[in-house]
Design a binder for these strands. Structure first.
Lengths: 142, 142
DNA sequence: CTTGAGTCTGTAGGGACTACAGACCCTAGA
DNA sequence: TCTAGGGTCTGTAGTCCCTACAGACTCAAG
């Protein structure tokens, strides 16, 4: 039990910096149960190591891919109880993929309409602002 | 000042139904200054007409196109003070179009990664779950 | 006249953070 | 050794865009 290979310890600010997130996000994730409560120094400061960093980065990456906190929780459960998680993880990711695809479809519809509106405005031939008129007219029906 | 061509009056529920939004959304928009406070009946009920409906639908359409409430407020200002709004409206819509396009780009990146992850999981040849491993590994760098 | 539905108000809740106030603690320089 | 500044701690309030609720009122039908 000698400790000559002591792991590197860091405080919250350094962890945030290394993971590239806001300081307070870490505390929030701890309260939300996504990250474990870290050990404390004698004076009560949080003390993190590489395992905390790894887990935080996992959460941030999943969030960046658009998983909700609940979905991240589910993924972390699979991480923590590694039995045969592959099918379940694939289903989670598959469901989320569908979400993402339908969001893309929605945004593309918006994009098309906005482009038309901007284009109509650009030629400036109509007396009224066609963009605003377009918003007053119904999308497809009265 | 005869009133034989009286406009149709309606209460909040009917307006919500006709505009296709939640009952409470109307009250919220009024408090937020997007819709005018409507006249009241003697007993204090809100009383709307076609102009309210038109304006509410405008707001809902702009929201459906992803404009924030602040952006909708700006558009409504252009509606209310019709001078030469076209350039300003076009700029607003153009800026918003850029937002939408960058969201689409983000989501497409997510889609690509998720597809890869699901595909890797699907062949089931690796012992560890590749999806979860992928989340532990960095997106591009360590 | 009663009953049930509609409307009124203010306020709380949601998700995912972000920011702040007021109290500690820790370190470096004078 | 003292002190000044930064960092960290806690809980709480604010953000955005609604949505839902409680408790009081009103209205129309039977």
């Amino acid at each position: 039990m000698c400790d000559h290979a002591a792991v590197k310890r860091m405080k919250r600010a350094e962890l945030a910096r290394r993971a590239g997130c806001n300081l307070e996000t870490i505390r929030y994730y701890e309260k939300a149960g996504l990250l474990p409560e870290p050990p404390r120094t004698q004076s009560g400061y949080r003390s993190y190591d590489a395992t905390h960093e790894r887990r935080l980065k996992f959460v941030l990456r999943a969030r960046a891919l658009g998983f909700s906190l609940d979905e991240v929780r589910a993924l972390l459960r699979l991480v923590d109880e590694r039995d045969q998680p592959c099918a379940e993880a694939r289903d989670l990711a598959g469901a989320h993929l569908k979400d993402v695809q339908s969001k893309i479809a929605d945004l593309k519809r918006m994009e098309r309409v906005l482009k038309e509106m901007v284009a109509q405005c650009a030629d400036g031939t109509t007396p009224e602002c066609p963009l605003i008129e377009a918003l007053f007219r119904a999308n497809g029906k009265s």
